Simulated scan of single mutants.
Amino acid sequence: MSVRQQVRTVLCGAALAGLVLTTTQGIATAAPVPGGGAKVSPVRAAEDAAARALARSLTDDAWRAEMSRAVADGDGVGLKALAAGSRTGAGAALAADVARADRSVLAAKGLPADVGGLLTVTPAGDSGSRRAPLVAVAPTDDEAAPVTAYDSAGRAHTLDATEAPDVPVYVVGVDGEKAVEAGLEVLERELAAAGVTTADAAAAVSATGAASAAATGYWTSRITSVYVADDKETWIKGDAEIFSIVSGFGLDGKVRVDTVTHPYLDDAETTYYPNQILVNWSQYKYNLADVVMMEDDGDTNYSSLAKAIAAALLTIADLGAYVPLVDPVVDAIPASFWTDDADFVDAWYTLARETTGTRNGAGGNGRFTFDRYWVSAL
């Protein structure tokens, strides 16, 4: 299937999913714990284990009050640090369960142990309600599927994903911004180790004589505005964590990959004006590059992604003319990524050094506006 077909499949499927689900605000009757042989990702399993443990721990009034104060500003907090630093017995007991779940998350995402805890807890729902809080995990498919939440007795309840419930909910999830930052370091490091030129493997620049050419500065493509029609995030998942993979041919004639994070790009149907550099053209042989925009949806394994992209790109040789690299990058994405629509956001073919103005993505989901920007040397 070509990237254009994949883009259409992803976007149309997500749009239809958002249309067919009817809204039923609040809590449904207690439901059995999800199972029945359905395949659960390692990250989801770890989040679910932490959520159940957290729900059980909230029977302790002192710990429950401490938790409420910790998330009172509405932002997510690190669950591992919160539990480990608690002065209550319930919090201290929870710390071991969270640490175990965090180790599973790091392993599943291909991240080193020194990244630290990734699991967070974020308040959602009606924080002003006097009803006992529930603890939920965001669904992994991003298609407004019902959300499972647990009470302190371990019973599962079903919440509607399209409307925030009328009870307090603590959402256990992964710190996406921290995961993306650490993950892209892994991605570039493993690509470089495999032989793909990256920002960490730019020593060849001096051998080409390009270093002197760039001594006075270099041209870049700068994002003056960006818009995403659908970031695939339901109420329970919060902000999107989006990044771009920029690919082209380096100065040594080998395929080059650079990664760019977009930490400001939180919400769909919102235009952002970051003035962010996307491509440094002094690092590319041709005046053309391709862009694939993706989102870390919790299950992204950066080590696996790097190996798959490297295996695909290292088969492409520089034959003296630019070869678009979007299709190889997208085709290299492991099949499991396509089970979660938000992993792939959109793609831009043959972005040129001279490109200015607005460019829509191939899937019609994303839109960049560019200008040419000269970066002067110090």
Rank of each mutant, 00 (worst) to 15 (best):
L119A: 04
T315Q: 14
P139A: 10
Y264Q: 07
D331M: 14
T88A: 06
I242T: 06
A156R: 12
A312R: 04
G110M: 02
A213Q: 13
R367S: 14
R8S: 09
A347Q: 14
L82N: 06
T88K: 01
A308W: 03
I245H: 10
A199D: 05
T162Q: 02
D290A: 02
V137T: 10
D327K: 10
V33D: 15
M294R: 08
L187I: 06
V345Q: 15
D258E: 02
P123R: 00
A50S: 10
Q276W: 13
G116P: 05
T259M: 04
Y150H: 13
K285L: 13
G195S: 05
A215F: 13
Y302M: 00
P42T: 00
R52A: 11
P146V: 10
S304Q: 09
S129G: 09
S244R: 05
L54P: 09
S244K: 05
G117A: 04
M294Q: 00
E143Y: 14
A93Y: 05
V7Q: 14
T315W: 07
L305W: 07
S221N: 12
G125W: 08
L265T: 10
L82T: 12
T122S: 00
L118H: 01
D297T: 12
K39A: 15
L187K: 07
K285I: 09
A362I: 05
A70R: 14
V255D: 02
A55T: 07
D331G: 11
W63H: 06
N275S: 13
D343W: 13
T29Y: 14
G361R: 07
K254F: 01
M293E: 05
D267A: 08
P165M: 01
L106R: 03
A182F: 03
R56Y: 14
R256I: 03
P324L: 01
D252H: 01
Y349F: 15
V260T: 08
F370K: 01
P334R: 08
F337S: 08
R367A: 12
D267H: 04
F243R: 06
P139R: 09
A72Y: 02
S376K: 04
T88C: 05
